[in-house]
C-alpha cells in the first residue's frame, strides 16, 4: 500500500488527476487497446475530474481510447434526475472530454431485471479485460461504492439496500426530504473492485479521519469495507492532512518521508506536454 499525504483537497485532486493522466499515457491506449478506468461519484472526486478536464483541454491526455465503469447508481431514480449518477458524470466530466458514449458504462437503476443488469455489468468489465485503475472514495463509515458496513468483502455487483446513515447523509441532495431519497442502489462489489489491477482511494476531510485509520491501521473488517484493500497488491490511498488526524504519528511520518519517491509517479511524462 502507498499512502500519499498532501496538504489539502486541491492538492489531493491534482495529484490524483496527474496519476490518472500518467497511467493512461503510459498504457498507450489505441483502437485495439483500451484503457479501462473505474470511476466514483460524489464530492471527493469532483476536483480530480476538474483537473482531468483541464489536462484534456491542454492536450495532455485524451479519453478517446478509454472505457469507463462507474461504481454505482440509485435504483428507480430517473436517469435525467439531477442527482442521478448518470447526470453527475455527464455534468461534471463526460460532457467536457472526448470520451465516446459507447465506452461509458454506468449501471442502469431503472432496468426491468436488476440482478441481470448487475451480472451484465460484471460481464462487460470482463469483456473489456478487467479494470486497469479503479478510482474510489469512501464514506465516513468506511464504505466503498455502496458496500455499506457488513457487506461481504468478496461481494460482486448487486442490488444493495442503503444504510440509514447513507440515506440521511444523502437527503441534502433531495431537498432534505428523507422520503425522496432512493433506498436502494446498484453497486459494484468489494470483490469487483479488488480485481482491478490498481486501486486509488481518495480521502479528504477530518470527518473521514476515523475511516482512514480503520482502513489502514486496523485489521481487515467487513464493518469497514475499505479495509479489504489491505489485501490488494496495488492500492494507493491519497489523503489530505485533515484525514490523517486519527493516524499514529509514526505512520504519518513514515509515509511523508517517502513523498519524494511517490511524487515521481505524477511527474510529467517526457514528451507528454509537448503535444499541441
Amino acid at each position: 500500500m502507498k499512502l500519499i499525504i498532501l496538504e489539502q483537497y486541491d492538492q489531493v485532486s491534482e495529484w490524483a488527476a496527474k496519476y490518472v493522466r500518467n497511467k493512461i499515457l503510459l498504457f498507450n491506449p489505441g483502437p485495439e487497446r483500451y484503457f479501462t478506468l473505474g470511476l466514483p461519484t460524489g464530492g471527493t472526486p469532483l476536483g480530480c475530474y476538474k483537473k482531468l478536464i483541464e489536462f484534456y483541454k491542454n492536450g495532455e491526455v485524451s479519453f478517446q481510447y478509454v472505457k469507463t465503469f462507474n461504481m454505482d447508481e440509485y435504483v428507480g431514480l430517473p436517469r435525467d434526475h439531477p442527482e442521478s449518477y448518470h447526470s453527475f458524470m455527464w455534468n461534471n466530466f463526460f460532457k467536457y472530454i472526448d470520451i465516446r458514449a459507447e465506452n461509458v458504462h454506468i449501471l442502469d437503476g431503472n432496468a426491468a431485471d436488476l440482478p441481470s443488469e448487475c451480472q451484465a455489468f460484471e460481464k462487460k468489465i470482463q469483456d473489456a479485460g478487467g479494470i486497469e485503475l479503479f478510482v474510489g472514495g469512501i464514506g465516513p463509515d468506511g464504505h466503498i461504492a455502496f458496500n455499506e458496513p457488513g457487506s461481504s468483502l468478496v461481494s460482486r455487483t448487486r442490488v444493495k439496500t442503503l444504510a440509514m446513515d447513507t440515506i440521511q447523509a444523502n437527503a441534502r441532495f433531495f431537498d432534505g426530504d428523507l422520503s425522496k431519497v432512493p433506498t436502494m442502489a446498484l453497486t459494484v462489489g468489494v470483490g469487483t473492485v479488488m480485481e482491478a489491477k490498481e486501486v486509488m482511494i481518495l480521502i479528504t476531510g477530518g470527518h473521514k479521519a476515523f475511516a482512514l485509520y480503520k482502513a489502514i491501521e486496523e485489521g481487515v473488517n467487513h464493518m469497514w469495507t475499505v479495509s479489504a484493500f489491505q489485501q490488494h497488491p496495488q492500492t494507493l490511498f491519497v489523503c489530505d492532512e485533515d484525514a490523517t488526524l486519527e493516524l499514529r504519528v509514526k505512520t504519518v511520518k513514515y509515509f511523508k518521508g517517502m513523498m519524494h519517491v511517490h511524487n515521481k509517479l505524477v511527474d510529467p511524462l517526457p514528451g507528454s506536454l509537448k503535444k499541441n
Partner: peptide, 23 residues
Amino acid sequence: EDLWVRDGRILDPEKLFFDEQGY
C-alpha cells in the same frame, strides 16, 4: 457550455450521449 444543434434545433447533449450514444 457547448451548444448542440441537430435538424435546426437545439439538442439535449445528455440525451444524445446516454440514449443514442451519439456525438
